[in-house]
Structure formats: structure tokens, C-alpha cells
Design a protein around this nucleic acid. Structure first.
Length: 237
DNA sequence: CACCAGGCAAGTA
DNA sequence: TACTTGCATGGT
């Protein structure tokens, strides 16, 4: 018997017996989280451009710090594609400094904005008129735009019914036996999207509620599972 | 002080 | 294919 010595990560906790991620169960979890936390009002942006910028800036970064960077961009009238395209790299990096990884994110923002201008004439609306699967594939080809960033953009800026999978989703649903540790993000996304109605408003709120729950109860090293609204999941499900 | 945050790409074996 | 590492600020 392998015994845990330190329990450094949540994934060290052996999950309960596997249970099927059927619509009833996933919707029950959603309803419980919504009843507990209420609407999360995602995505907190005034425009699609602002949302897209935020999606890049929040990569592996606390949202609090992204807010500061966005406030800087707003004050400098940089929350539009043309301004972002024309600004010097060093100036953009200075503006987004509080969100961390600023040199990297400068290049990523420039790449994404440049792509939208070149490929879609600078029209985010026109970009979203493209077929979603094809658009997703094209966006993944832009340097610095990975699966979670793409799916966030499609869901929260484009209102496309794409379920966003992040580390929190993996943690919670692995812990409760709905996915296997060996499932990659694409597999997890498939489980959710085959089990839930393809409703952008539902996917929007569900992902936001997962993040909200995990922030409070599912820290990597100090999980507070007993206080989590889903703590009694095996019994009520 | 250590650890974490609404990831991604490049490098290594 | 499956890890590991760099990127960087700011809060707990």
C-alpha cells in the first residue's frame, strides 16, 4: 500500500469511485453551485476587444492584477485593435506590467490583434461569423493562444457554446470521480459537451461557478474540501 | 517565507 | 509521447 507522505497536491487525494458524467449529475452540480454562489457576471468587460485582451492577460495570472493592467490600457485609450496594433512594444509592456509576464504577453497581444486585423479586417464581429470549429483551429495557430484562451474567447466574447476547461475544472471533477487523471483537456471537454445542452449561457455560468468554487475550496496545497458546497456529493448525487 | 494566480510554448529525454 | 522550464507581478 502506497501511503501518502506529504499530500502536496489535490490530485494526491484518491478519488472516490468513478461515476458517469451524465446530464442529470452535471446539471445537479450546476444548480447547487448557482444556488450557493449566484450569477458570477462573467466576462467582466465592456467590449469584445476588452474581453479578448483580458483573456490573454489572465493567463496564469490573478484577475486582480489583470484589472490593473486593463485600467492602464483604458486610461491610455488602448482598448481597441487599431491602437493596440500601433502602440510600440515597450509602451504596451509598460501598460500591462501589473499583470505579469508583460514582455511575453505583449508579443501575444500583438500576434492576436495583428491576426484579427489581417485575417478579418480588424472586425471581431466578422471573425465570429466564421464557423466555430474552423475559427477555433485558426486561433490555436496564433502564437500564444492555447486551448483555454481560445475557448474563453469563443464563449465569453463570441457567445459560442464551447465549454472552457481549466485546471480548476480538472481538480474538482477528478476529485469527485467524473474524470480520470489520464484524461487530457480535450477529453474532459468532450465529457462536458456530450453531457450538457449546448447553451452558451449555461456554459458561461458553469465555468465561472467552477472557478469561484475552486478559488475558495480547492487550493493546490491547502484544499478545504469539507467546507466546499460539493463536499457531500457522493451522498446527494 | 513559500506558494499561488481564470496558460502557453519551447526544450529535453 | 511525457515531463520540465521560463515567463514576472502582486497578494496571502
Amino acid at each position: 500500500m502506497a501511503q501518502r507522505k506529504h499530500s502536496t497536491t489535490l490530485t494526491d487525494i484518491p478519488p472516490p469511485r468513478r461515476r458517469a458524467a451524465n446530464p442529470t449529475r452535471l446539471l445537479s452540480i450546476y444548480n447547487r453551485l448557482f444556488a450557493r454562489f449566484g450569477p458570477q457576471r462573467w466576462w467582466p468587460a465592456e467590449t469584445a476587444c476588452e474581453m479578448i485582451v483580458g483573456a490573454v492577460l489572465t493567463q496564469n495570472t490573478a484577475w486582480r492584477n489583470v484589472e490593473k493592467a486593463i485600467a492602464n490600457l483604458r486610461a491610455a485609450n488602448l482598448l481597441n485593435l487599431v491602437a493596440l496594433h500601433n502602440i510600440a512594444d515597450a509602451d504596451l509592456a509598460a501598460a500591462i506590467r501589473p499583470s505579469g509576464f508583460f514582455n511575453l504577453k505583449t508579443l501575444r497581444l500583438k500576434a492576436l490583434v495583428g491576426w484579427i486585423i489581417e485575417r478579418h479586417g480588424g472586425s471581431i464581429k466578422r471573425m465570429f461569423s466564421e464557423e466555430t470549429a474552423a475559427l477555433r483551429g485558426e486561433l490555436l495557430g496564433v502564437k500564444g493562444i492555447g486551448p483555454e484562451t481560445v475557448d474563453s474567447i469563443l464563449l465569453y466574447a463570441g457567445q459560442k457554446p464551447i465549454f472552457v476547461i481549466d485546471a480548476y475544472t480538472r481538480r474538482i471533477f477528478l476529485r469527485h470521480g467524473f474524470i480520470a487523471a489520464s484524461d487530457d483537456d480535450a477529453a474532459v471537454q468532450h465529457i462536458f459537451m456530450k453531457s450538457l445542452p449546448h447553451d452558451a449561457a449555461l456554459f458561461n455560468e458553469y465555468h465561472a461557478l467552477i472557478v469561484r468554487t475552486a478559488k475558495d475550496y480547492c487550493k493546490k496545497r491547502k484544499p478545504n474540501c469539507d467546507a466546499c458546497p460539493l463536499a457531500d456529493l457522493p451522498r446527494w448525487l
